[in-house]
Structures are given as C-alpha cells and as structure tokens.
Simulated assay, not measured.
Amino acid sequence: MWTRRNSILSAGCLAVSGLPTFARAQAARARTPGAQGEAFPRLKIFVPAGAGGGWDQVGRHLGSALQSAGAAQQIDYENKGGQGGIVGLEEFSVRHAGDPGALIIGGLVMVGAVALSHKEALFKQVVPIARLTSDYLVLAVPTSSPFRTFKDLAANLQQRPDRVTFTGGSAGGVDHMLAAMLLRALKTDVAALRYTPTSSGKDAVAALQRGDATVAISGYSEFKAAFDAKLLRPLAVSSRRGNFGIASLREQGVETDLANWRGVFASANTPPDQRDTLARAVIRATESAAWRQSLQDNQWIGSTLTGKELQNFIALEQSMASAVVSLLKLEKT
C-alpha cells in the first residue's frame, strides 16, 4: 500500500523554529492585539503565490475572518509567486524579519518545494502560527478529453505514460507528489512522468484548455468553478473515500491517497510574546462565523492546529517530503 507517510525514511525529523507557547500568556499582556476586545490596527498577509489560487483564497478568507472577529482593523495583501512559494518566502524573510504585524501563507506545497530545492535553511526563517485547512486533490480533464473515466487514464498511463502530461502546482509540491505516487501505484516507471508546473489551479485549467496538458491536479475548491461551468470532468479524488461526489483513487483500485494542508506563518525573528499575540488573533478568526462560512463555501476541511502538536506535525511533514522527493526521484521541471 503506497501512501506518502509510509515512505518516511528513518532519518531524523528536521528542526522547526519554536512555536507559540500559550502557557506563557499572562494577565499583564491580556489587552494586547489579538486578545478579546483588542485588534491589530493593521496586518499584512503575504501570499507567496499568484492571485486566485488556493493560498490566495485561504489568505483572503483569513483576512476577512480576522476583521469580522474584531482581531484586525485593516488587512493588506501582497502576492509574490514562484517556485512553490520559495520566491515569496525569501522576500518575506528579508522584508518582514521580526515584523509582528506580518503573516505569510504556506503549507505542504511549500514544504515540498523546499525539499526539492534543498533549501531547508530557508524554512527556518519562519515560524508556524497555525494550520488552518486541509483539502483533497482532484484529477480532472477537459470535457472534450477522450479519457471518460479514471480507468481510461490509468490504462493509458500503464501503456504509454509519455503521452500523458500532468499539470498542477509547483515542482515538488503536493500535486507533483500525487502524480508521481499515482504512477508508482500503477507500477509505471516514475521517471516517465511528464509534469508541467503552474502557479495556481486557475493556471492549470488554462493549460488544459490550451492543450498544453492532458490531466490537471489541484484542490477541489480551485476547480469548482470550472466543474460548474462544465469545462472540466473530474476523474478521481485523493481522499480515502469518495468526496464531492467523486470516487476516490482507492475506490477505483489505486492504493494511494494524499491530503493537502495550508497554514499561516510569521517571521522566526518575531519575539515569542508577539508570536503568541498573532496566534491568539488567528484562533479568534477561526472561531468566527465568517471563517465557518468560508470553510463551507470552499468545501475546505477546518483543521486548526497550534502549539507543540503543530511543531510535531510539521517536522513529520518535512521528513515525509524529503523522503518522497528522494524515493520518487522528483526533479525540478
């Protein structure tokens, strides 16, 4: 049975910067921004990806929830895409080092891109504040595609993988991982994988429509508008069981599954007490009616995680990503 987690090598988990420690919060700090009744006058949410993609959606919905919960008065957004978030992460680390009013969106895609580029030191420039959402990936084709079912796609991959071009997010990211895991599960040479990275699900849809790719992989929320407009046809979803009315890979005979996640980070140079303040603000936002509505509208799974549990989770994800990149022989494209 092939899953991304059973590929973790025995090498030790990578170190992760210290996380918010809520136990240190004291009454003397109770009336700081993020505490009940207090708000940041201004917050920056930095999105290391193009507009319209999954990170952008999460970032903007988080910003709206922060304002709705009274945790922030004004939110400024900035997009800087490239290399699975690495370009934006590098810029954020320099421009917002120690800035207690700046957050950057990230997740498994960024962890994978860091592993692929061997820039683990860069990830130490940020500290995780909270995991926010989980999402499952969908394999989709244009409605005009000869692949009417996933079985059609699987048969083609087993016989002529060189005739199938996948598109999705950045090289080394979660979409790239799933494409490689699929070939491995089908007992097809992973070296034959043809994968064209894009900066968002919207760009992946455009690549399909231009004929530059055969199959696209992205989160359901990024494909939903194209499904509703009958531009794309879903073939399978990466959850263990069917979701969104789509049969899972496992239900269609492929022993693999994968979940994406997204979260929010701050500069590692931000003082611990100010990290705690940011974390309290984010938690307030995730408890708001506005955030619950965002989860429902985008069909995201709320998976808020903070503190030591988040530290352990990300360390495991870093080790997993490094193992998958090595085992599947993923390369920059």
Rank of each mutant, 00 (worst) to 15 (best):
S294E: 11
L9H: 10
G211F: 12
D203L: 13
G302Y: 04
Y77R: 13
H96I: 06
S134F: 04
R160W: 09
I301R: 08
F244A: 11
G34C: 03
L208C: 09
G85W: 08
F147W: 09
L235M: 03
L14Y: 04
P197I: 03
A259Q: 08
R4Q: 10
G253M: 14
V87C: 05
E222L: 08
P161H: 02
V205W: 04
T167W: 06
V16E: 07
K230V: 04
G63K: 05
D76E: 10
A15P: 01
T149M: 00
A30Q: 11
Q311T: 06
K151Y: 15
F46P: 04
R280I: 03
N298V: 06
F227W: 15
R29F: 09
A213W: 00
V138C: 15
L328S: 08
Y136W: 10
A113M: 08
Y136G: 01
I246R: 07
S200Q: 08
Q73Y: 10
Q159C: 14
R241Q: 15
E331A: 14
A28M: 01
P128F: 07
C13Y: 10
A290T: 02
E309C: 00
A207K: 00
R5M: 05
D257H: 15
P128C: 10
C13F: 06
P161D: 05
A113L: 08
S17T: 13
Q252Y: 13
V190T: 04
I314W: 00
A115T: 05
G54Q: 14
G18T: 12
T270R: 08
G302I: 00
P272T: 13
G52C: 01
E317P: 02
L231M: 14
L19R: 01
L193I: 11
V174Y: 09
A121Y: 09
W2Y: 13
K119A: 15
G37F: 02
A171L: 10
L258Q: 02
M1G: 01
E90T: 03
D175I: 00
A27L: 13
T256V: 15
G53Y: 07
D203I: 13
I246M: 04
V111M: 08
L43Q: 02
L232N: 03
R284N: 00
R194A: 07
L186I: 03
A130Q: 06
I314S: 00
